[in-house]
Amino acid sequence: MDIPPVVPPGRMRALPRTVLGLPDGWLLRHWEPYDAPALVASGTDPDIQRWNRTGRFTEARAEERIARYRANWEAEEAAIWAIAPEAGGLPVGLIGLADLDLAGGSGEILYWLMPAGRGSGTMVGATDRVSRWAFEELGLHRLRITHSVANPASCRIAEKAGFPLEGTMRGALLHADGWHDEHLHARLRTDRPVRH
């Protein structure tokens, strides 16, 4: 017996590339070519470079990456938003869904924040908002967050956003300083909504 796909082909591509509101003067919007300086800056932030494998950007490479974000949405491979001030200005962070398995109904949330966005709870709200979009609009069943066990800030974000710890994956990701064990957190569509 064939199992139908959880998210039918074409569904994501047909969804509008919406702006997602957040509290406290922030929003999630799509990356634009004029946001390239924010990606360039992310490549010089030691914490982003330590915990993410984004690499360094020239202005031209940043513009290429932003174009790829748009192409990945159209190809139904990823959905990436900029975390930006509601009043306008360059993004202070990135959040999105990657490693999408639409037929199987799952994906992985990835994120980073520049110092200007840290410490305010913005990433918890952004993670919850993208999760609700993924479940309610896109139709996924399961989302996961993975991070180095040496990164307790990501652990707190995941748990506060309704992603309980499921376990540790040994030697799961190669960082600049070697192989790291990774925590695996997950949230299901059927889990109770997060209260902030």
Rank of each mutant, 00 (worst) to 15 (best):
G21W: 07
A150F: 12
G104L: 02
P33L: 12
A38C: 04
R132F: 01
E63N: 10
P46E: 11
A126T: 03
T44K: 15
A186S: 15
G121V: 05
L20T: 09
R144K: 13
W26V: 14
D99V: 07
G119P: 03
A78V: 00
P5C: 02
M1G: 13
S42F: 03
L22S: 07
D181E: 02
W51C: 00
L100S: 11
A41W: 01
H180V: 10
R118Q: 15
D24C: 03
S42A: 15
L27C: 11
N52S: 12
S106A: 15
L28F: 08
L165T: 07
P85K: 12
A41Y: 08
V149A: 03
P46V: 11
L22G: 08
D101M: 08
H185R: 01
G117V: 05
D45K: 09
G10M: 06
E86Y: 04
R129N: 01
H180C: 07
A75Y: 04
E76Y: 12
M123Q: 05
T54I: 11
P152M: 09
E137N: 01
W179F: 01
A67D: 08
L100R: 10
G55Y: 05
P193F: 12
L188K: 07
A153C: 03
A98L: 07
A41G: 11
E77G: 04
V6I: 03
E32K: 05
A75R: 15
A126E: 05
L188D: 13
G43A: 13
L94D: 03
R129D: 06
H141T: 05
G171L: 10
D128L: 05
A172S: 14
Q49T: 10
H185M: 09
G21I: 00
I109T: 09
E86P: 01
E64A: 14
G117S: 11
T190A: 11
R142E: 06
T127E: 12
G121C: 04
R68W: 13
L90K: 07
M12G: 06
D128E: 14
P33G: 03
Q49C: 13
G167D: 12
G93A: 12
L27Y: 00
H141N: 14
F163E: 11
E86L: 09
N151I: 01
A38F: 05
G125D: 08
S42I: 08
A67R: 11
H183D: 00
T146Q: 11
G162P: 14
T146I: 06
R187Q: 10
H147P: 00
A71D: 14
W81T: 01
V149I: 14
A161Q: 13
S106M: 10
F163I: 03
F57M: 13
M1I: 07
E182A: 10
L20Y: 07
R11S: 03
H175Y: 10
W51R: 09
H141C: 06
G162D: 14
D47N: 02
F163G: 00
R118T: 06
A38P: 06
I109D: 01
G89Y: 04
R129M: 07
F135I: 02
G117E: 09
T146G: 08
G125C: 04
A41L: 13
P85Y: 09
M123C: 02
H30C: 02
E159G: 10
E74P: 05
T58W: 02
L113Y: 05
V6F: 01
E159M: 12
D181R: 08
T168C: 06
Y34G: 08
V40S: 08
W73K: 13
V92M: 07
A79R: 05
W26Q: 13
V92L: 14
G10H: 02
P85I: 04
P33M: 07
